[in-house]
């Protein structure tokens, strides 16, 4: 791996070296390194790009890293990764995609991650997106996440994209069985003339299932963002979505919530707030000795933390 690839790997997976546990590192369209454990198997798909990650029932405190890096300008790929997580597991999955494009043609990674989560399992899923390189070619990522949560399972999903991705259309669809719980936290920052779209569709099908979608977004310069959140309450359930956004410069943000209660005991809430940084917040930090620009940076960093 060269320095550019190492940097991408560090940005998206926090990795300085080979991770512990199971992993699969994909670079420029091919798996370059892989490790499996007694409980976690990783198998290349025979018919298309991608892998199956098979996690045995009862696997606890293990992790899987599956970073993807693209440093070859002009490469576009479509990858399918399926996670089969058995019952009674407690695992952390770290995915992420870094694109370095120093050329003039577009580099693109489209990925579909599908999670089948067994009953009583707890999955923490972290996904970071990062772009670098000063070529004119765009860096594009279109991640699709499909989640099927079995009875009483719990998935926490954290997605972060704060630098360098020119265009992203992210879609997440989840179905929840009884007692299942889903918490999604999204952090998104766009700058320059970037475009980002994030759409969620959550079907609360099981009794006592619950979902919480929390999006924090900052749009700078001339960038544009669209946030779409659809929650359907089909049983006694609780759903909450929240879009909190800071708008700066000439940026534009739209938030489109849709909550549908198909059951009398479905309790659904949507909150959305878009606005510029409150002047009094900047004033307060200036009274502590920060310049206006430093105050602004502090507020944005805190907001996206």
């Amino acid at each position: 791996m060269d320095e550019i690839q190492k940097n991408l790997l560090e940005q998206v997976a926090g990795l300085h070296e080979i991770p512990a546990g199971a992993y699969n590192i994909r670079a420029n369209g091919a798996s370059i390194e892989r490790n499996t454990t007694a409980n976690i198997d990783i198998v290349t798909k025979p018919d298309k790009q991608g892998i199956d990650i098979l996690i045995r029932p009862g696997t606890k405190k293990e992790s899987v890293h599956i970073p993807v890096i693209l440093s070859q300008s002009g490469l576009t790929e479509m990858v399918y990764n399926d996670f089969h997580i058995g019952d009674d597991c407690d695992v952390t999955i770290i995915a992420g995609c870094g694109i370095h494009n120093s050329g003039d043609s577009e580099s693109r990674h489209d990925g579909i991650h599908t999670f089948y989560v067994g009953q009583n399992s707890h999955v923490k899923y972290v996904e970071k997106h990062y772009g670098s390189g000063d070529g004119k070619g765009e860096r594009i990522m279109n991640p699709k996440t499909v989640v099927e949560l079995g009875p009483n399972s719990f998935m926490e999903m954290e997605t972060v994209q704060i630098r360098g991705v020119d265009s992203t259309v992210r879609s997440t669809a989840a179905t929840l069985e009884e007692g299942a719980k889903l918490v999604i936290t999204e952090r998104l920052m766009t700058h320059g003339s970037q475009y980002a779209e994030s759409s969620f569709r959550v079907d609360l099908n099981g009794a006592d299932s619950s979902a919480n979608l929390i999006s924090r977004a900052v749009a700078k310069d001339d960038s544009k963002q669209l946030f779409l959140a659809v929650i359907n309450g089909n049983q006694r359930c609780a759903g909450h979505s929240e879009c909190d956004a800071i708008i700066m410069d000439r940026a534009k943000i739209s938030a489109v919530p849709e909550i549908t209660a198909n059951h009398l005991d479905a309790a659904l809430i949507h909150e959305a707030a878009i606005g510029k940084i409150a002047g009094e917040q900047i004033t307060k930090l200036m009274t502590l000795g920060l310049t206006e620009a430093e105050a602004e940076a502090q507020i944005v960093n805190g907001f996206l933390k």
Binding site: R216, T283, K284, M286, T287, L288, G302, L304
Partner: peptide, 27 residues
């Protein structure tokens, strides 16, 4: 400016303190 005065050693506790999302008490 406010910043210059702050750096010259003037401090001010607001009557209505400001709230911040994501900034911790420690910060």
């Amino acid at each position: 400016s406010i910043t210059e005065r702050a750096n010259l050693g003037i401090s001010f506790a607001f009557q209505q303190p400001v709230r911040f999302k994501g900034i911790k008490v420690k910060d």
